[in-house]
């Protein structure tokens, strides 16, 4: 067959399945030598750096119907994994309901990379910088697993991305609008922040990324507090102990010290040649405390107007 003219590992052959089931069948057939691909930006970087071997086969997902586009219905948003990062950050429904996600994506790569890279690839990598924002928005992942569709909380999947048995294909990222939580909930307004720390101001791989989200009442009490951290090759995680510190509490200097201590105790970053885990843990704790101070301060300022 024509496919075999290139030596494996030099220039992979490309298969283009027409539906999710076929994609899974191909992956099953090729095993580790077949790699799902869409934008391919992360894969190319891995091949060039030597952190991953070029596979014999690319299974190109871009012709599969239903994986592109963003659907909004009944207070939720389902983002297709083939949505390009540039498209995602410009989508009004994302920018208004999930501004942290839009901000996180805006910080990934440069415009040209975001024109190729997809949100599905960022999620499936398990280390993408969109993940902390998706974690605080409590995203759910929709999977095609051979014959059926499965839904997993992003947080559960990230706890052990390799755990699931068998071949699966990411088919959607579901977000529930924070606006939709308002009826019946406590009064106040939604506040949140996303920060990325890298070795340069812009277009840099992350050392630390953090996202925080909560509802700030007029008296300064926080509810629905969510925090997450990631960055570099660390798999992002929710910071449950830190969340507990601020839940139902006000942002006082004492509370911020305890939040910071909780982050230091529970966040598990990965070291590399440029930045050790200890530095990243401290940076995550400081960024989170600084953002809560800013958000609570902005709230008080707003009340005074």
């Amino acid at each position: 067959m024509a496919m075999k003219e290139q030596a494996p590992g030099r220039c992979p052959e490309v298969w283009r399945p027409r539906d999710a089931a076929e994609a899974c069948r191909l992956k099953t057939a090729f095993g580790p030598d077949g790699v799902f691909t869409a934008g391919g930006t992360l894969l190319r970087t891995q091949w060039e750096s030597g952190s991953a071997a070029m596979p014999g086969t690319l299974i190109d997902l871009t012709a599969i119907p239903g994986l592109a586009g963003i659907r909004a219905d009944e207070g939720q948003l389902v983002i297709g994994p083939l949505v390009k990062l540039s498209e995602l950050m410009r989508t009004e429904a994302v920018a208004t309901a999930f501004p942290l996600l839009a901000e996180a994506v805006r910080r990934i790569g440069a415009p040209s990379v975001r024109n190729l890279a997809t949100i599905g690839g960022n999620v499936a990598s398990a280390v993408g910088d969109a993940l902390p924002a998706l974690l605080v928005h409590e995203a759910e992942l929709l999977w095609h697993t051979g014959g059926r569709t499965e839904t997993t909380a992003l947080e559960d999947w990230l706890a052990d991305p390799g755990r699931a048995q068998g071949v699966r294909l990411l088919t959607g990222i579901r977000l529930k609008r924070t606006d939709a939580e308002a009826p019946g909930g406590p009064p106040g307004r939604i506040v949140g922040a996303y920060r990325k720390l890298g070795r340069r101001e812009a277009f840099t791989p992350s050392l630390v990324t953090i996202a925080v989200l909560g509802r700030l009442s007029e008296d300064g009490t926080l509810t629905g507090v969510r925090m997450a951290a990631g960055g570099g090759s660390a798999v992002p995680m929710r910071l449950r102990a830190a969340e507990t510190v601020l839940e139902g509490a006000r942002v006082t200097p004492d509370a911020l010290v305890r939040v910071s201590e909780a982050v230091l105790a529970e966040y598990r970053p990965a070291s590399d040649a440029f930045a050790g885990a200890e530095y990243r843990r401290t940076a995550a704790a400081n960024l989170i405390a600084a953002e809560w101070l800013r958000l609570a301060g902005a709230g008080r300022e707003g009340d005074g107007r």
Binding site: G40, R44, S112, L116
Partner: peptide, 25 residues
């Protein structure tokens, strides 16, 4: 590796890195 931009081309009018883009795409 898509960092320097020396290989920038337009794909359907939008900038992409030619080093990251494969022929079939």
């Amino acid at each position: 590796i898509g960092r320097c931009g020396a290989c920038m081309v337009l794909l359907d009018g939008k900038p992409v890195n030619a080093c990251l883009t494969m022929l079939y795409q």
